[in-house]
Amino acid sequence: MFIRTERSIKEFFELYPVVTIIVGINIFLWFIIDFLNLQIGAFIQGYGIGSNYWIGQGEWWRIFTPIFLHAGLMHMLFNSFSLVLFGPALEQMLGKVKFILAYIGTAATANIGIYLIESPTYAHLGASGAVFGLFGIYVYMIVFRKELIDQSSSQIIGVIVAMALVMTFVRSNISILGHLFGIFSGFIYAPLLLAGVKSYSPWARPRPRKRKYEDDDDGPQFDPNRWNKKRKMPEAIRKNMLWIIVGIIAILWLLGQANIL
């Protein structure tokens, strides 16, 4: 379930569009807030961070917006990588709508728990509540829906969840309540989300698109758009586009740290 076999970014996007879009939002917001340090980025973070005080003043959207904001590059990469690793199987099993509800719903529940228990001065950001929410759904599968998850995947989840919970209490600057409420809400919502779902299939692939112009016979055919066709991107570049983008961003970030830019 957690071994990625997609042959390209395009195929990954076609199979798991929600996961891809969420990761794209995470990267984009980090880029304009932390990397470019734009004024609009500061505005977004200022009005998006999960501040208990401002939530109490009626800014309810702060229950949701912190899900897409992160405290630096490593925080964003860790949560995005976790989503790429553990999100695709659930997106295929639940479908797009239920997966969005699971991701945002568990995180929002965790943020509400933080608001109710933490002090009015407490502020937080990050998608950890959502990631732990996905863990909670997997834990429910292991306990009550064993037919939906294979034994090796159950063992992987067990180890990952145990390590994540230990690190929650060991590391500093971690929202303990966010993690605990996230995994708890995923476990609680799982019966509704998993109703009627089928187990993950690693052989699922997007259906091939129909050709706009199909030959009626073996003779030469006229394509009116032939002059407008663009050359295809080289296969090596297309398959490794994600790593190329990540590499460029990393180089730019290092240059920025060295005050070259």
Score class of each variant (00 low, 15 high):
residue 60 W to L: 15
residue 119 S to T: 11
residue 58 G to K: 13
residue 239 K to W: 05
residue 40 I to N: 01
residue 14 E to I: 11
residue 218 D to V: 00
residue 166 V to D: 01
residue 77 L to A: 15
residue 20 T to S: 15
residue 177 L to A: 12
residue 218 D to T: 14
residue 52 N to L: 10
residue 39 Q to W: 08
residue 208 P to H: 14
residue 167 M to R: 01
residue 147 E to C: 14
residue 209 R to C: 04
residue 226 R to Y: 08
residue 60 W to C: 11
residue 37 N to I: 03
residue 221 Q to E: 11
residue 33 I to F: 09
residue 177 L to C: 12
residue 103 Y to A: 04
residue 243 W to K: 06
residue 142 I to T: 14
residue 165 L to P: 07
residue 150 D to M: 13
residue 257 Q to M: 10
residue 62 R to E: 06
residue 199 S to L: 09
residue 67 I to P: 05
residue 231 R to V: 10
residue 37 N to F: 08
residue 152 S to F: 15
residue 144 F to I: 03
residue 6 E to C: 12
residue 87 G to Y: 07
residue 225 N to M: 07
residue 189 Y to H: 04
residue 39 Q to E: 08
residue 166 V to M: 03
residue 8 S to V: 13
residue 15 L to P: 15
residue 72 G to A: 03
residue 177 L to P: 09
residue 248 I to V: 05
residue 6 E to P: 00
residue 55 I to C: 14
residue 78 F to I: 13
residue 133 G to I: 09
residue 203 W to L: 10
residue 12 F to C: 12
residue 178 G to S: 13
residue 146 K to L: 05
residue 120 P to D: 03
residue 93 M to I: 02
residue 239 K to Y: 02
residue 231 R to D: 11
residue 251 I to G: 06
residue 241 M to H: 02
residue 19 V to G: 09
residue 208 P to R: 15
residue 31 F to C: 08
residue 198 K to T: 14
residue 44 I to S: 07
residue 44 I to F: 05
residue 40 I to R: 07
residue 63 I to V: 07
residue 98 K to F: 03
residue 238 R to S: 06
residue 9 I to F: 13
residue 222 F to N: 03
residue 61 W to P: 15
residue 217 D to Q: 12
residue 230 K to S: 10
residue 30 W to N: 09
residue 3 I to K: 13
residue 33 I to E: 08
residue 158 G to N: 06
residue 79 N to A: 15
residue 102 A to G: 04
residue 21 I to V: 07
residue 31 F to S: 08
residue 214 E to T: 13
residue 157 I to T: 13
residue 107 A to H: 04
residue 197 V to E: 00
residue 38 L to F: 02
residue 95 G to Q: 02
residue 102 A to C: 00
residue 49 I to W: 00
residue 157 I to V: 13
residue 126 G to I: 06
residue 210 K to V: 14
residue 19 V to R: 10
residue 40 I to H: 02
residue 250 A to G: 10
residue 215 D to A: 15
residue 26 N to H: 12
residue 10 K to G: 14
residue 229 K to Q: 02
residue 201 S to L: 14
residue 200 Y to M: 14
residue 141 M to W: 08
residue 120 P to G: 01
residue 66 P to H: 06
residue 14 E to V: 12
residue 194 L to F: 10
residue 243 W to V: 01
residue 72 G to H: 03
residue 26 N to Q: 04
residue 45 Q to G: 10
residue 136 G to C: 14
residue 101 L to A: 01
residue 161 V to E: 05
residue 90 L to G: 03
residue 53 Y to S: 15
residue 228 N to D: 10
residue 4 R to W: 12
residue 33 I to A: 01
residue 128 S to T: 09
residue 9 I to K: 00
residue 178 G to C: 14
residue 256 G to F: 07
residue 227 W to I: 01
residue 195 A to M: 04
residue 159 V to K: 03
residue 241 M to W: 11
residue 91 E to K: 02
residue 185 S to C: 06
residue 1 M to V: 12
residue 159 V to I: 10
residue 61 W to K: 11
residue 20 T to R: 12
residue 238 R to D: 06
residue 186 G to Y: 08
residue 219 G to I: 14
residue 193 L to I: 06
residue 171 R to A: 11
residue 132 F to I: 10
residue 77 L to G: 11
residue 133 G to D: 06
residue 30 W to E: 02
residue 4 R to I: 11
residue 182 G to C: 06
residue 94 L to F: 00
residue 259 N to G: 05
residue 169 F to E: 10
residue 123 A to K: 01
residue 39 Q to H: 02
residue 187 F to T: 04
residue 151 Q to V: 14
residue 200 Y to T: 15
residue 109 T to C: 04
